[in-house]
Design a binder for these strands. Structure first.
Length: 566
RNA sequence: UGCCGGGUCGUCUAACGGUAGGACAGCGGCCUUUGGAGCCGUAUGCGGAGGUUCGAAUCCUCCCCCGGCAGCCA
């Protein structure tokens, strides 16, 4: 490479140890300079943010090196897999912005080839039909510190093995009565090499092959060969498969077929959540959340519904890097990514979550003024809009304090505050009901302080948002927060992880007041409610009555002050 | 106790024998008609002990700690 040559993708794309391996392969012309990866989900659940890391890695590498990335469904276990999951996985990958080309690959497409290879191993004396039951197999496997024992069926003749295996395939035997096992080494220090099961009998309909098969390949038998069939060069997976690599290597070597290189990386862990499919399934099934795409879930569909953008998730996966050490990413980084993206894109609107009525006593009754409001100060192309101002408004309950602390810069008795895009007002009195709740705040406005006129010499510390009462639209808002109240819900040996579920992870406010422009917002539309946070329209909203989901709050330095003051 | 892997700011992640840098979080400040955004500044780190070397996060030795593995799951 000459000095002027710059890898076009090397500037923006973060480098990691996998790039180094691939660069070395390219230098030595291993795999004829090809880079072919794959993303191989099992269709037994919804994809989560951890999968997003893998998706961005695999598709990203393909893009970076002008290679390909196959989407392959590892559908070798018909008892757990469903078409629903296949569809959701495709939708999520697409949404994330990746394209797998015309072909969708399925491990189930290789069942016949895998079967032939199994016979080949039997013929070579490298596989045998075992009649030990599951419990016995476990007992014979030995322990982590003790070698296993050889199965009594280990030394059958090739003819007998072939006959039995063909009859397994033909459906002559009951589930669990026999397995096909690789004949490797029962004393191997790597338990994966202790005659692993290759096939189990399962009289079960498969979502794609129907009732064709009575035996199904184990993942360990299917995965490496599937990669090999697809001529994958770099088979990237998570660390827990590291101990399986010698087995995958053994299979492809016995078969004499293309040998992909498996590279393992550390899976993503996120603070304040759980990531395993099993636990996510449990959250759904036990009703802790409403669905797989509940906005509190770390699933891709949940994040989407929460208001995350594909760009923000891709930026996140870039920032967390790829390495082999265990990691727990601070969820604050994810939140930072969506704020950063939405700050640039989201239109600003005013919304009052916990409304309290303000009456401007010296403002002409019935008068309505149109004021200019900027749609996005970060994006001049977003333009501006007109908002209507009148004598009665709603402001945020929290923006008024009857007995203000010293650092409180908003409305309080006798004090002034600016209404965003409008006037400076001063609080003169308050009305309360019998229970002492504030029902109205009486103010006067200063006509000289109209926003944008520059006629005011007044300076006030605070600016608050508001919605005019005469045309405010009432909407439902879901305030979402972290699903767990502790960083590591699984970190306690005694207390069950579900005990740490944040009971305030969802607060629904049925009657928030928003400006009329928001009435016809469509599902998925994203906004910044000024001073509050980013919100998006829930997908189940009815036309004309949007339900808003809070994606994330704005950074809140007031909250910090409050916290510091106890 | 077997095998495999891993330990760099609070959390992630760079450095590939030559000044330990970046991001997020934190703290302090500036600015502000969003207590937003932005800007500036700042503290904190090579698990430990030896060794090789002019020079070690990087190479060697020993130790300590953490993770994964005993499904007819993937």
């Amino acid at each position: 490479m000459n000095d002027n040559t710059i890898n076009p993708s090397s500037e923006s794309t973060p480098q990691n140890f996998i790039n180094e391996i691939i660069d070395e392969h390219l230098r030595t012309n291993k795999y004829e300079g090809r880079v072919n990866t794959r993303f191989p989900p099992e269709p037994n659940g919804y994809l989560h943010i951890g999968h997003a890391k893998s998706i961005c890695l695999n598709f990203g590498l393909a893009k970076q090196y002008n290679g390909t990335c196959n989407l392959r469904f590892d559908d070798t276990n018909p008892t757990k897999e469903e078409v629903e999951y296949v569809d959701s996985i495709k939708e999520d990958i697409n949404w994330l912005g990746f394209n797998w080309g015309k072909t969708e690959y399925y491990a189930s497409d290789y069942f016949a080839q895998l079967y032939d290879w199994a016979e080949q191993l039997i013929l070579a004396g490298k596989a045998y039909v075992c009649e030990l039951n599951a419990e016995q197999i476990r007992a014979y496997r030995g322990t982590l510190t003790e070698p296993g024992k050889e199965s009594p069926y280990r030394n059958r003749s090739v003819e007998e093995n072939l006959d039995l295996f063909r009859r397994m395939k033909a459906g002559e035997f009951t589930d669990g009565s026999k397995t096909l096992r690789a004949k490797i080494d029962m004393a191997s220090p790597n338990v994966n090499m202790r005659d692993p099961v290759m096939y189990r009998i399962l009289h079960q309909e498969h979502h794609r092959t129907g009732a064709t098969w009575n035996i199904y390949p184990m993942y360990d038998w299917a995965h490496g060969q599937s990669d090999s069939i697809e001529k994958i060069t770099h088979s990237i997976c998570t660390l827990e498969f590291e101990n399986h690599r010698p087995l995958y290597d053994w299979f492809v070597e016995q078969l004499g077929i293309h040998h992909p290189l498996q590279i393992e990386f550390a899976r993503l862990n996120l603070s304040y959540t759980v990531m395993s499919k099993r636990k996510l399934l449990q959250l759904v099934e036990d009703g802790f959340v409403k669905s797989w795409d509940d906005p509190r879930m770390p699933t891709i569909s949940g994040l989407r519904r929460r208001g995350y953008t594909p760009e923000s998730i891709r930026a996140f996966t870039d920032k967390i890097g790829v390495a082999r050490r265990d990691n727990v990413i601070d969820v604050a980084l994810l939140e930072n990514c969506i704020r950063e993206d939405l700050n640039k894109k989201a239109l600003r609107r005013m919304a009052v979550l916990n409304p309290v009525r303000v009456i401007i006593d010296n403002y002409t009754e019935g008068l309505i003024e149109e004021l200019d409001a900027v749609n996005n100060p970060e994006d001049t192309n977003a333009g501006s809009r007109k908002i209507e101002f009148s004598r009665e408004l709603f402001i945020e309950h929290d923006d008024f304090m009857e007995n203000p602390v010293s650092q409180f810069h908003r409305l309080s008795p006798g004090k002034e505050v600016r209404l965003r895009y409008a006037y400076i007002i001063k609080c003169n009195s308050i009305e309360k009901d019998a229970d002492g709740n504030i029902t109205a705040i009486h103010c006067e406005f200063d006509p000289e302080t109209k926003s944008g006129t520059g006629t005011s010499k007044k300076k006030v510390k605070g600016t608050i948002h508001w919605v005019s009462a005469h045309n405010a639209v009432s909407v439902e808002v879901n305030l979402y927060d972290r699903l767990f109240s502790v960083e590591d819900p699984q970190g306690d040996k005694v207390i069950d992880w579900k005990e740490f579920i944040n009971k305030e992870s969802l607060i629904t406010l049925p009657a928030c007041k928003v400006e009329p422009a928001l009435k016809d917002a469509a599902a998925g539309d994203k906004f910044q409610f000024e001073r509050l946070g980013y919100f998006c329209v829930d997908k189940d909203s009815k036309p004309g009555s949007p339900v808003f989901n809070r994606t994330v709050t704005l950074r809140d330095s007031w909250a910090k002050i409050e916290k510091k003051n106890g």
